[in-house]
């Protein structure tokens, strides 16, 4: 019975669903994740066969060959059995071959390089403790945290890090790949046939806020993508209050870029109000069915960044000398800085 429990558990879990559509490996939303899922299914099936055999023999042996009071004679001492041993050497070999062939095929398919593919959209992913920078060299656009892609296009990634090793993972679209420092950059590609927002995560321990280093992949129609590109290139929306604008320029734009202004050290903030989250971990209720309004999130973040994301590199605005009113003003500006696409 104990051995049946895991099987029952499997089935009950399958019935309960296999996780979120935008997050689960078991609900692939793109061809790359689908290919990997097929391989997972194949390997699970082979391995279930193995498990069933081993469990069945175990159960039989455990029940049948218990020691009983009438056992006074010693059992026959069997040295081995050549035939049996050949069988349980050859059958696993065959099973391994069945798995090895599609594995090798997939390995090479996944290894295809689309770096020079004119039809693919090139994206340079630059990972930082604890945020993601996405650069589109073909369009001269840089953004952060939300990766916007058009549906049905090959997205060719080049992954690098500017500090420690991270790992770029969008479970429902593709498996992960590490972001290494210069010299060992990685390339791969995926595509998303359906419109939607997919959750991405950092999968390599990278410091205290490793668990909060999330990002989103937003797949939009090709038309929307064009609109978004244009919106990203528009100049920065000005802050009406002159004093606040000055503070923003002196304190924020020294690290952040917004539109055509600022410096690209921290995350690019163009259109940050229309993103899925603030600081990747405070979900915005405007686009998610959970979380808080973007303005509230923005205030929470700016008032104490370390509380939201321990160990992050952004100086606390309070330490920079900003007053509560200034922080709220900037939060309001950023929360309302939305892109239409």
């Amino acid at each position: 019975m104990k051995r049946l429990l895991p099987m029952l558990a499997i089935f009950s879990l399958f019935l309960a669903g296999c996780g979120r559509e935008d997050l689960s490996v078991l609900r692939p939303q793109g061809p790359v994740a689908q290919g990997q899922y097929d391989l997972i299914k194949l390997s699970i099936s082979i391995m279930l066969v193995v498990l069933v055999i081993v469990f069945a023999i175990s159960a039989y042996v455990i029940i049948k060959f218990r020691r009983r009071p009438e056992h006074t004679e010693m059992p026959e001492q069997v040295e081995g059995n050549f035939k049996l041993e050949v069988i349980w050497t050859v059958i696993p070999l065959i099973l391994v071959l069945v798995l090895a062939v599609p594995t090798v095929k997939e390995v090479f398919a996944f290894g295809e390089d689309h770096a020079n593919d004119k039809n693919a959209i090139q994206v340079k992913v630059n990972a930082h403790q604890y945020w993601w920078e996405f650069e589109y060299p073909q369009f001269g656009i840089t953004t952060a945290q939300d990766l916007i892609i058009p549906t049905n296009k090959k997205i060719a990634f080049e992954l690098k890090t500017s500090d420690v090793i991270h790992s770029f993972w969008v479970p429902s679209l593709s498996g992960k790949l590490d972001t290494n420092p210069d010299g060992t950059l990685n390339r791969f590609s995926f595509s998303a046939p359906k419109e939607g927002v997919y959750r991405g995560k950092c999968a390599e321990l990278c410091g205290p806020s490793h668990g909060f280093m999330e990002f989103k992949v937003k797949s939009v129609s090709p038309e929307s993508f064009e609109t978004w590109k244009a919106a990203m290139k528009a100049p920065m929306v000005a802050i009406e209050d002159k004093a606040l604008a000055e503070t923003f320029k002196n304190q924020c734009l020294t690290c952040h870029a917004v539109g055509d202004q600022g410096t690209a050290v921290g995350p690019n903030l163009t259109g940050v109000g229309s993103r899925e989250s603030v600081a990747s971990i405070l979900l915005n209720s405007e686009t998610n069915d959970e979380g808080n309004p973007v303005l509230e999130n923005m205030k929470e973040w700016l008032h104490d960044p370390q509380l939201v994301k321990p160990g992050n590199k952004m100086p606390s605005p309070k330490d920079l000398g900003l007053t509560d009113a200034e922080i709220d003003g900037i939060a309001e500006y950023l929360a309302n800085y939305k892109l239409e696409y």
């Binding site: 490996v25 994740a33 290919g35 990997q36 899922y37 391989l39 997972i40 390997s43 699970i44 082979i46 391995m47 391994v96 798995l99 594995t103 997939e106 390995v107 398919a109 996944f110 790992s167 993972w169 479970p171 593709s174 498996g175 992960k176 790949l177 999968a203 390599e204």
Partner: peptide, 15 residues
């Protein structure tokens, strides 16, 4: 053995 399959491991790894 499932983890040994590299493309599948891209999904399993570090989870």
């Amino acid at each position: 053995v499932m983890l040994a399959s590299a493309p599948a491991d891209f999904q399993f790894h570090d989870t």
